[in-house]
Simulated assay, not measured.
Amino acid sequence: MNTLAEAPHKEPSEKEILTGLQEKVSASRLSLFLQCRLKFFFRYVLRLKKPKTPSLHVGNSVHSVLKTWNKARWLQKPLTLKQAHNAYIEAWSDTSEGMPVWEAGEEDAEKTTGWRLVETYLRESHVPADLKPDAVEVPVEADLVNHGLPRLIGILDLVQRRQIIDYKTSATTPNPEKVAHTTEIQTTGYAILYRHNTGQKESGMALHHLVKLKNPKVVITTMPPMTRHQENRLFRQMEAYVTGLQHEQFVPSPGMHCSSCEFFNECRRH
């Protein structure tokens, strides 16, 4: 009989966390660091926990059922609408990442909104149910040590006929030019990951926005394959990320985005 008590879990030190962040980076971490280094510090270094927002919960639930739908297509066993709805209900009830604090009547309204987005997407058949995907929700990495950069990590939502597809929920209709610019870190990162792991060049990118209007709609923004200029720009951004972490340059970046930041109070007190 083992009488030794299990060693208590030891939380990593701030130095250990910073070292780990310099070894691997995702598009979302890089984007946040470039948006506001202090917000990055609160979320990824101090690891401050904040309640889940209603919009994030809707987005996660929609994303989950689309993932289930695409995996069923990959198995060539397409879901019925009823099965998709059951998957949505299960995703909505998932509390593993916390649940938002709802106002009176808000949860039912948001739950209905989320399902209407899914139903609209499936009904309009933007990706045919009988077309087998190349890949669904695949975690991938790219070792960029030859460029003096950290390992790039990410998860590809969907690859269809060598086109990289990413799902997003939005409250407003996206502008194609602005979307292409604001998501460039993500789309370029995905292209690098795809090429590194397949040895092939992607046929292009597509962002499938599920827009939460009174009459939900789907807006698809397509983009050509990654250019050498975009790859070089991402590498320079990653260099700035590494340098900033090495020197612990966690400075705030005040601006319009602060009004919706979950760390507003912490920033004001910092």
Rank of each mutant, 00 (worst) to 15 (best):
V25A: 07
P78C: 09
V58M: 00
A27H: 12
E119F: 11
I155G: 01
N86Y: 13
P139I: 05
V218F: 09
E141V: 12
V251S: 10
L207W: 12
S96A: 08
L34V: 13
D157P: 09
S203M: 09
H247P: 04
T187D: 01
I192V: 02
W69M: 14
H209E: 05
N2G: 14
V179C: 12
A206Y: 01
D94R: 03
V101A: 14
V218Y: 07
T80Q: 09
Q249S: 12
P150T: 11
D108W: 04
Y241C: 09
Q76H: 06
A135F: 10
G199C: 03
T113G: 04
R195Y: 03
K168I: 00
K168Q: 04
K39A: 07
A7S: 02
T112D: 11
F42W: 06
P216G: 04
R116S: 13
G59F: 10
A191P: 00
M1R: 01
S93H: 07
N146C: 03
G154M: 05
I153D: 02
K212E: 10
L18D: 00
L79A: 06
Y44C: 11
T169R: 02
L193S: 11
R151L: 01
G244V: 08
C258M: 05
N146F: 03
S13Q: 04
L210K: 10
A104W: 05
P128M: 09
P176V: 03
E107Y: 13
L21H: 02
K67E: 15
A84H: 08
E107R: 11
Q230C: 08
T187N: 05
K24A: 09
E16G: 13
S259R: 13
P78T: 02
S26L: 00
L245Q: 04
A72T: 13
H257P: 11
R29W: 05
G148P: 03
P139S: 12
S203K: 15
E124C: 10
E248M: 05
V219C: 12
C258Q: 03
E231Q: 15
P12E: 00
C36T: 03
K132R: 14
H229A: 15
K214V: 07
D108M: 03
R236Y: 08
A7P: 05
N232P: 01
V251N: 05
R236P: 10
H247D: 08
V138Q: 14
M223P: 06
Y190N: 05
L245D: 02
C261Q: 06
A135C: 15
V211M: 11
L75D: 15
A109F: 12
T169K: 03
V62I: 08
P54R: 12
V219D: 09
Q163R: 15
K82V: 15
A7L: 02
G204I: 07
V218T: 15
R233L: 14
K217F: 04
K132S: 07
V218A: 00
D157L: 09
Q249D: 09
H209A: 14
H209M: 13
S253Y: 07
S26N: 07
E107T: 00
K77G: 13
